[in-house]
Amino acid sequence: MLKESGNNVALRSRKVLKTLSKKNPSDLVLVIGGGVSAAVAPGVPALRSWRCCIEAVIDAAEQFEVLHPGDVVEFRKRVLREQDLLAVAHDLIRKMSQRTGHSKPSFFQDCLMEVFDDLESHIQNPTILESIVSLMDKGAKVLTTNYDNLLELYGQKMGRPMKSLDLNDEVKVLEWVQSYINYGVLHIHGLYTDPCGVILDPCGYKDVAQDCKLMDELQNLYSNKSFVFLGCGETLRDQIFQVLSLYTVHNKVSMEHYMLVRKENSDTFYKLQADLLLKGIKLMSYGNSFTNFPLYIKELSALICKERTENITHVEIEKLLEPVPNVQPAAQKRKLDENTETGKPAKLNA
């Protein structure tokens, strides 16, 4: 339950669904959207939204003079008027890659590097990142639609062996799915430091979609784990996410996923709640202000980790009560009593 923050901003007390708070972190896949990066580094315009990211790339292209002034004007108009921003971004990349004739980047790489230059120095509010790393410590997986590596940078600063993965590396992705990589962050759209892995439409994932083993593993992940969507305004409409999991998995109603959103309008919220429930996704509100988001994630992470810790303690106590070879019941009881009085775990010697 959320409490008032130190700056006397009253936060509405909000409950966390028991089915989520009692999950084992290793049963969770955290889906990180643009809202997380925007909260962590609000000073970077490109992190505020997908639209802002495209606008920032256009600005960089203009500065580097890699787009004709007429094209700059046209793309700025398209960003404002078109709904399918993915198509705009795809065309923008092609325009900066005319020699190759496809969406592989050339000048696009320079523009991305300019847009996301020195990201670590822009981290202002690491609360969400700290909470996510805490869940990763206990086995949670992380998947993201973001191009930035803020989570990896922060995790490395905390001493974790963070790794950035993309779908072009089948071996690493399979290791991540099978939990051989504990601190991997899967970027399904690629990462700005490796623009060749950035793919913006389903056609670009032809090789991935035809890889039956990889697709089966990803879809099994969506079927057997609980996905928790954090800062994901448009992720469910994302064509890549749909191809990989959402619309290729059957029996969605029997699943149990979660999405956190800001509740700006009650009618819109409850309509979305009803729609998502048909897809096996439970909608949760962190409040009516984006400023509540980091604190809610912090409390959610602490609650899930606490529940897990309490469960482990209970199991350990049960094991202490099991018969131990060559130890008399009275001696075993004395050991348990000593452990209870000192508050420290004590091993029973055979």
Rank of each mutant, 00 (worst) to 15 (best):
K18Y: 12
E310T: 01
E318A: 12
I188P: 01
D238E: 02
I128H: 07
I54H: 00
A209E: 02
I58K: 00
M158L: 15
V185T: 07
E130S: 13
K163T: 12
C203M: 10
E62G: 06
Y180H: 15
K15C: 10
L230Q: 05
L135W: 03
R99P: 02
C53P: 01
I181D: 12
D169A: 15
V29H: 04
L218V: 03
C196G: 14
V36S: 06
E62R: 05
C203P: 03
V133G: 08
V249Y: 13
L272D: 05
L191K: 05
Y270G: 09
T144M: 02
Y147K: 00
T342N: 07
K225I: 08
T340C: 09
C232M: 04
Y154S: 07
S266N: 14
H122V: 04
E256A: 11
A350K: 10
T309E: 00
N339Y: 11
D148N: 07
D166N: 09
H189W: 04
V142F: 06
A346V: 12
V171E: 15
L47Y: 01
L28R: 03
E152L: 06
V57T: 06
M158N: 15
L303D: 01
V16F: 05
L28C: 06
G155R: 13
K333V: 10
A140T: 10
P105N: 09
Y183I: 11
R78S: 03
L200K: 03
L167D: 02
V173W: 02
V73E: 07
V177L: 05
I304S: 00
P325K: 15
I188L: 03
D216E: 03
L244N: 01
Y192M: 06
E114T: 15
P195D: 09
D118E: 15
L246N: 01
T268I: 15
G34A: 14
V243N: 05
N8F: 13
Y154K: 07
V208G: 00
S134M: 08
V133E: 10
T235I: 03
V171C: 12
L186K: 02
W50H: 02
E74A: 11
F64M: 11
T100G: 11
D166F: 04
Q124T: 11
F108T: 05
Q124C: 12
K206R: 12
I93E: 03
F64C: 09
E256G: 08
L191W: 09
S179F: 14
V88Q: 00
T342Y: 01
V261W: 01
D216A: 06
L129Q: 01
L236H: 02
R48M: 11
T235Y: 02
S37W: 08
T291G: 10
E4V: 12
Q328L: 13
K157P: 06
K344N: 05
A274S: 14
S289C: 11
L276A: 02
Y205T: 03
Q328P: 11
K206E: 13
G343R: 00
C196I: 15
P42E: 07
A350D: 12
M255V: 12
